[in-house]
Write a protein that binds this DNA or RNA. Structure first.
Length: 441
RNA sequence: GGCCCUAUCGUCUAACGGUUAGGACAUCAGGUUUUCAUCCUGGAAAUCGGAGUUCGAUUCUCCGUAGGGUCACCA
């Protein structure tokens, strides 16, 4: 894998890295991380750090690590050889980067022949290299350019398979020309379909989140993101969609790679994340969710660790990814667990009721039942007597006003879950308060 | 514009000449102990167009059309 530290780690780059990693794993090969930082003006260590951090987060482990900026002597040696063999030459010309400055670039002699190579996903591809001309391979003898460094490194490092984005397909013939010049063996090429934005153009910043970091920060799980990314442009030929990294390694093959570009669909990613989250037990989910939730609810008047623990399962069931917890919390969706809700009389009326007054006797009865129940009863203990009453009088007629009395919300978890979270004493208070509200309405 | 690549439901995709064109996400409807969520069931939804080849084309060929990539002293 050969990312360039000249910008945020792109989600497409992450996918390419993933495919490379999986492929190398599957065939017992060596996964090489090679930082392509030959452009000194654009490369930064912060971006390099982001690449390393991001791919590590995704679960990728490389066997070898190189930086092209540390390999100048090797490139220089190859350049000198090519010049000595008259396969390349020094050309004195005006700098394009700095007009007015005279520099000596190195150009490869190009006979302009037709190059055909076998692409593992696309089959035979042919290019005419004539219009490339004698292209520049180095800014100077000490400053080799991308196409040259890549070919030299692939050769030196014994790279057998080049799996990269389709945007590189037209670079391939010129790299083959360089290979032939330095006497390198041609690796196997596989050009992956591009990741597209919803408008089918190349996925870029103007389409929103394209950095791996954006998804990390939004709380997507590396396993879910990797799973989704793996299926964007590849499929195992079965209906299975949920994969761990290990399973992917076992199933993957280049033959299952798609030719056409694939639109990155955030909705499907959310589904994958939810599915991966499903496997979390309470402790794991606590660790996942608490950092998102705590800053928002820890100052609420009735906040306690106990309530937080009991609330978490309902959140687990409802959210797709971490930042959604923040959205919901900020919208007040979890307030019922940590503070007394504001309730209005009209909300307390069930749809079959004429007014909230109809609900009054039912709420009083529930309050009475509540007063007999243990504060820390389990879900079934709390539910049984109240539900029995509800079945007698009418489920909606009892349960709706009860739920609203407890939460003050149009939508929330069911009343038994809420009672379980806040305890019977607090529940009793809230129901009594709802009764007072009805009376004073 | 030149060159290259691509083309199945809205989206990701399956179907290596013969299927009622399958699955998943999203969506819609109904159901499951009130609302939300979960879960279950069901529905709607696709082979870009035109010629060929063939007994038979989603599948093979050609031509269109559309989309994309690339044309650096970036990677």
């Amino acid at each position: 894998m050969a990312p360039s530290p000249t910008g945020n780690l792109h989600i497409g780059t992450a996918r390419t890295a993933l495919y490379n990693y999986i492929f190398a794993q599957k065939y017992g090969g060596t996964f090489i991380m090679r930082i392509e930082d030959t452009d000194k003006e654009r490369s930064t260590s912060a971006f390099e750090e982001e690449i390393i951090e991001g791919l590590t987060w995704l679960g990728l482990k490389w066997d070898d690590f190189y930086r092209q900026s540390e390999r100048g002597d090797i490139y220089k040696k190859y350049l000198e050889t090519l010049i000595a063999e008259e396969k390349a030459y020094v050309s004195k010309e005006e700098s394009r980067r700095e007009p007015g400055t005279e520099i000596e670039v190195i150009r490869l002699k190009n006979a302009g022949k037709s190059i055909t190579f076998e692409d593992e996903v696309r089959g035979e591809v042919t290019f005419d290299t004539t219009e490339l001309g004698d292209f520049v391979i180095a800014r100077s003898i000490d400053d080799a350019l991308y196409h040259f460094t890549v070919v030299v490194d692939d050769h030196e490092m014994g790279v057998t398979h080049v799996i990269r984005g389709e945007d590189h397909i037209s670079n391939t013939p010129r790299q083959i020309l360089i290979q032939e010049a330095i006497g390198a063996v041609r690796p196997v090429y596989a050009h992956l379909p591009l990741l597209l934005a919803p408008d089918r153009s190349k996925l870029s910043k103007r389409h929103g989140a394209v950095a791996l970091k954006d998804y990390q920060d939004a709380g997507y799980l590396p396993s879910a993101l990797g799973n989704y990314l793996s299926l964007l442009g590849w499929n195992p030929g079965t209906d299975q969609e949920l994969f761990s990294l290990e399973e992917l390694t076992a199933e993957f093959d280049l033959g299952g790679v798609q030719k056409g570009g694939a639109i990155f669909d955030i909705e499907k990613l959310k589904w994958f994340n939810k599915e991966h989250l499903r496997g979390f037990d309470a402790a794991a989910f606590y660790e996942y969710a608490a950092p998102w939730l705590l800053p928002i609810v820890s100052e609420k008047s009735q906040f306690s660790e106990d309530r937080l623990q009991k609330l978490l399962p309902t959140i687990h069931e409802r959210i797709t990814h971490g930042s959604e917890i923040v959205e919901n919390a900020e919208a007040g969706e979890y307030d019922f667990a940590f503070e007394t809700p504001a309730v209005t009389a009209e909300m307390l009326a069930w749809k079959n009721d004429d007014s909230a007054k109809d609900a009054l006797p039912r709420l009083r009865k529930v309050a009475e039942i509540l007063s007999t129940l243990p504060e820390d009863g389990d879900f079934e203990t709390l539910k049984a007597p109240i539900f029995a009453f509800a079945e007698q009088v009418g489920k909606g007629e009892v349960l709706w006003p009860l739920r609203v009395a407890l939460t003050g919300k149009e939508r929330s978890p069911d009343p038994f879950t809420v009672i379980h979270i806040i305890g019977t004493a607090e529940s009793y208070k809230r129901v009594q308060h709802a009764c007072d509200t009805i009376l004073s309405a």
